[in-house]
Design a protein around this nucleic acid. Structure first.
Lengths: 135, 135
DNA sequence: CTGTATCCTTAGGGATACTG
DNA sequence: CAGTATCCCTAAGGATACAG
C-alpha cells in the first residue's frame, strides 16, 4: 500500500489514489452499472486488460475504496463492492459526468440523467446511494 | 491533440483528458492559488519537473482547458489562464477537495473551506468563479 | 528566469499463456 | 470462467543541460 504522498493537498491525495486512466472506470462500473465480478469489469467497453484490472482492483482494495469478499454461491470467485469511502466518490463522479457530457460532443450520457442531476442533485445522490448498499 | 477516445462515456472522456497525476494540480494552482506563470507552477509543493510541466501545459491547451497568452509586460513569458471549459471543472475540483479532506487524516484543507462548501456550495462556487475571469 | 531538449529509469499497459 | 504471471513495448517521469 502507498504510504508516502507528494503532499497532503486533498486534490493531490485524490489524484495519487485514483488519478490514472482506469481506476474510476472500475468504480463507475460498480456504481452505475451494478457490476461486481472480475469478468464483468473485463467486459467493459474500454477493454481493460486483465493484468491492469487485477492491479487496479488490488490498489483500490488497499486504499479501502472497494472490498473483496468471497461469493458464497461460488467459492472460486469474488464479489467486489464499494466501501463507504468508495461510495463517497459519488458526487465527484457525477460532476465528472456533467463536465464530460457538456464538453464531449459525442457523449453517451443520457440527457435526462444530466438534467436530473443539475436540477435535483441531492435526491439523485440519495437514490443512487440506496442501491449501493448490498449488505 | 488527442483524437480517438476509448469510449464516449463522460467519465472515460474526462479521465483521458486529465486522468494523470499532474494535470489537475496545474488547474488547482490556477484556480485556487492564482498562479499564472510557468515558474509559479514549477514551484508548487509537489515539485513537478520542467519537462512534465511543459508537456501538461501543452496538452491542457490542446484540450482547451487553459489558454496561453503573451504577457504584455514581459514578452518573453506567457500567462496561462483557464478557459470557460476549464472553469467548468470547479465543482469537480471542489468535490475532490471534500473527498480528499475527509479521507486523508493528514489533510491540509482548511476546515472552514470544507464546511462552507458543504453548507453553501452554490455561493462558494459563484464567488470563486468571479475571481477566475481576468479578461 | 522562461521555457525546450536530451538522457535514462521506472511505471503503465497490451497480448497472451497459464493455473485452479 | 476467475484470476495470475510473463513477456515486451510504450508512455510517464526525474535529472539535468541547454538556449533565449
Amino acid at each position: 500500500m502507498k504510504k508516502e504522498y507528494r503532499s497532503h493537498c486533498p486534490i493531490n491525495f485524490s489524484q495519487e489514489i485514483f488519478g490514472d486512466k482506469w481506476s474510476l472506470l472500475i468504480i463507475r462500473d460498480i456504481m452505475f452499472k451494478g457490476k461486481r465480478y472480475y469478468g464483468e469489469f473485463l467486459n467493459s467497453e474500454e477493454k481493460i486488460s486483465t493484468n491492469i484490472l487485477a492491479d487496479r482492483l488490488e490498489k483500490l482494495e488497499d486504499n479501502k475504496i472497494i472490498i473483496k469478499v468471497s461469493d458464497v454461491n461460488n467459492l472460486s470467485k469474488f464479489i467486489y463492492t464499494l466501501t463507504d469511502k468508495g461510495i463517497d466518490l459519488l458526487p465527484l463522479l457525477l460532476e465528472m459526468i456533467v463536465w464530460g457530457a457538456k464538453h464531449d460532443k459525442q457523449t453517451k450520457a443520457p440527457p435526462e440523467f444530466i438534467n436530473r442531476f443539475i436540477s435535483d442533485k441531492e435526491s439523485l445522490i440519495l437514490e443512487i446511494k440506496k442501491n449501493l448498499h448490498f449488505d
